[in-house]
Every structure is written in structure tokens, then in C-alpha cells.
């Protein structure tokens, strides 16, 4: 019965759960930020791909999966902005 659970146990459980959630959120935000920075550094150089789009999963990232999405989108963008265009790295011709 709920009525027989001592209040301090309830408080401890809620506080503990909240603490875990806070830690998880911080970790997710840090991971997301890291992935966004990595994506921005390794991503756009053609000028046609969207660094913002690569970084955005980091901003909303609450799980580790969001980081790999960011890295994946950066790789896809380097391969050529949805059209498979190569990047000649500013070659003078």
C-alpha cells in the first residue's frame, strides 16, 4: 500500500532519480556539443553543405545516439551535399 511507505524513503527515491536524470542530461548535452564541434571542424568546405544541420543533432542530443547521427551527417555532407559532389579542397585551377 502506498500509504505505508515512509516519506523520507519517497523523498530519497525522488531526489536520487532526479539526480540521475540531471547527470544524464548534462552528459547528453556535453556529448551533443562535442559532436557538433567535431562535425563543424570536419564538415563543410564546399560551401554548399550545411554545417548548421550537422551541428543541430548536438543541440538536441539527449542520448549517445545523437552524437553518431551528427558524425554521420558530417560524413555524408563531405561526400557531397546530397548529390555526391567531390570536394577538391580549394584546388587552384
Amino acid at each position: 500500500m502506498y500509504s505505508v511507505i515512509p516519506a523520507r524513503i519517497l523523498f530519497y527515491n525522488e531526489a536520487h532519480k532526479e539526480g540521475i536524470q540531471m547527470k544524464g542530461l548534462r552528459l547528453a548535452l556535453l556529448l551533443g556539443l562535442l559532436m557538433a564541434v567535431l562535425a563543424a571542424c570536419g564538415g563543410s568546405s564546399t560551401g554548399t553543405d550545411s554545417t548548421g544541420a550537422q551541428g543541430s543533432p548536438g543541440g538536441t542530443g539527449t542520448t549517445g545516439a545523437s552524437g553518431s547521427a551528427a558524425a554521420g551527417s558530417a560524413a555524408a555532407s563531405r561526400a557531397g551535399t546530397t548529390a555526391g559532389l567531390p570536394d577538391l579542397n580549394g584546388r587552384a585551377v
Binding site: 564546399t46 554548399t48 559532389l85 577538391l88 580549394g90 584546388r91 587552384a92 585551377v93
Partner: peptide
Amino acid sequence: KLINIKPE
């Protein structure tokens, strides 16, 4: 613009 070259 598409393939990131500098033509002259």
C-alpha cells in the same frame, strides 16, 4: 562553387 576549386 560546387566542387571547391579556385579557377583562373
